[in-house]
């Protein structure tokens, strides 16, 4: 599987926003995404994890070309789509869709669920009215909605049903790449599980590759094959799920994982945990050198390198990439916290 051409390749992607007025001191550049590279393999579910403001959503919006990247490149099945015009991009849109975070805002309140889901078919002129109705009915069944829901307006549906409609819209054209931007974080916990299960089943059946963005570690553990951890616009660690959960290298990943709960309270109490101090620095003025150094519990060990040199994301063991001065092939970062013991994932 690793040998196949990646479905999506992102290379040194940068997205800066200029903010505020040019006059006075209020202006500046927000380094939302800074030099991010990763690839999404065929049929893979890649989890992108990071706290609020780390640039996950900006990255997702750049990948689907809702934002213009400042620099870098995005390749969809080997084809560079970074600089395609909106018109040239349109035929390729069939292959790439996105599920939005807020199911209340992502559905046009003036259209019925059936119209919303059939819209991509209509716009790409892929099917006449009758065929469209059939395809819509088919995908409705697939995402677990009844045929009667096609005539409902979004405000007549529950949050979970709305997100199913959003999922149906994204998948009706059978795209090969799906970007899911926190698709369950606006839903009740009880509904979250059913949507996640659905997403996993659909991915297994339809075989699309999925970039799954979340801040919830339990979700990625359940769903994803590989995990990329983002901090302040940069990737700090990329590895398979098992590797990340068993053997996190980057101090930030370790801290993040130590915040995840273990089901057994006794075990939870005995875990060695690390709590990061302060807030993430402003992306308007990211720290020099390693971006994590201001909050890094291992800063004493990594100084002075980390104050000046930005650690590159490099492979420290097969398929395990880390951006830390303390981590190199053959030398591990000191363990500062116990990762949550991975419970074997069923299914």
């Amino acid at each position: 599987m690793n040998d196949a051409a990646p479905a999506l390749e992102v290379e040194s992607l940068v997205k800066h926003f200029t903010s505020g007025r040019r006059i006075g001191s209020g202006g500046g550049t927000v380094h939302a995404v800074d030099d991010v590279s990763f690839s999404l393999r065929q049929g893979e579910m890649l989890g992108l994890v990071g706290e609020s403001g780390s640039g996950k959503t900006t990255l997702a919006n750049c990948v689907v070309r809702l934002h213009e990247p400042t620099s870098g490149s995005i390749r969809l099945h080997g084809r560079d789509i970074t600089h395609l015009s909106r018109r040239d991009l349109r035929p390729l849109r069939r292959d790439l869709h996105m599920v939005f975070q807020d199911p209340y805002s992502s559905l046009n309140p003036r259209m019925t669920a059936g119209e919303i889901v059939g819209e991509p078919l209509r716009l790409h002129r892929l099917a006449g009215r009758k065929v469209r109705t059939g395809r819509v009915a088919e995908i409705f069944e697939r995402v677990g909605l009844g045929p009667e829901h096609r005539f409902r307006y979004p405000h007549e549906l529950s949050g979970g049903q709305r997100q199913r409609v959003g999922l149906a819209r994204s998948l009706i054209l059978n795209p090969s790449v799906l970007v899911a931007d926190e698709p369950v974080s606006a839903l009740d916990v009880s509904v979250q599980a059913s949507i996640l299960n659905l997403l996993r089943d659909l991915q297994r059946d339809m075989g699309f590759s999925c970039l799954f963005i979340t801040h919830d570690l339990a979700t990625v553990e359940f769903l994803c094959d590989r995990i990329a951890v983002m901090y302040l616009g940069k990737l700090v660690e990329v590895a398979s799920r098992d590797e990340i959960f068993r053997d996190p290298e980057h101090p930030y990943t370790q801290a993040l994982l130590s915040a995840a709960l273990v089901p057994d309270p006794a075990e939870q109490r005995q875990r060695r945990r690390v709590v990061l101090e302060g807030d993430p620095p402003s992306p308007l003025d990211p720290p020099s050198g390693c971006r994590f150094r201001t909050r890094c519990p291992l800063h004493d060990l990594s100084a002075p390198d980390s104050d000046e040199i930005e650690p590159p994301l490099r492979e420290v063991s097969p398929d395990h990439l880390v951006a830390c001065h303390l981590s190199a092939p053959g030398s591990k970062t000191p363990r500062i916290a116990d990762p949550p013991v991975t419970t074997p994932v069923t299914g």
Binding site: R86, R94, L107, N108, R110, H124
Partner: peptide, 26 residues
């Protein structure tokens, strides 16, 4: 700013479709 506008872009809609089908009716 509603998400159904970027969703329409991803559906392959052009500006006219977005303005007349998604913004005007609302």
């Amino acid at each position: 700013e509603e998400d159904y506008v970027p969703a329409a872009v991803l559906n392959g809609a052009n500006d006219a479709t977005i303005i007349f089908r998604h913004i005007l009716p609302n």
